[in-house]
């Protein structure tokens, strides 16, 4: 368990995982704020809950499934119209791997 102190480098790494191009000022702010929030969360970190099962759903339901029947799809134009950029009825994105 090492949610002790969070460094600005760690904040930078988290921002990268979350794909947020944070400014340096934001990195600094968030480093402090995350530390404070995590400090508050210490109260549960110290609880011994080894024998307690996690609750993932409020209702104990399982095996919810649907039958394998085709349903009408949405109108392609209505969807593509909302896209930042398209070409040949596909979503256009910038090159995926940049130059190093």
């Amino acid at each position: 368990m090492s949610a002790d102190k969070i460094s600005s480098n760690e904040t930078r790494h988290i921002a990268h995982l979350a794909r947020l191009a944070l400014s340096e000022a934001e990195i600094e702010d968030f480093t402090g704020q995350l530390a404070a929030i995590l400090e508050h969360a210490k109260d549960i970190e110290s609880l011994n809950l080894d024998d307690v099962a996690p609750t993932r759903h409020a209702l104990p339901i399982k095996n919810v499934m649907r039958s394998d029947e085709v349903r009408k799809s949405v109108n392609r134009e209505e969807v593509l119209r909302m896209a930042p950029e398209t070409q040949a009825n596909m979503f256009l994105v910038p090159k995926i791997i940049g130059e190093d």
């Binding site: 085709v70 349903r71 009408k72 799809s73 949405v74 392609r76 969807v79 040949a88 009825n89 979503f91």
Partner: peptide
Amino acid sequence: GCANQFGSEPNTNIC
């Protein structure tokens, strides 16, 4: 419920 189909026109089996 979108069709599982190979070779359709781009972005036609979407919801």
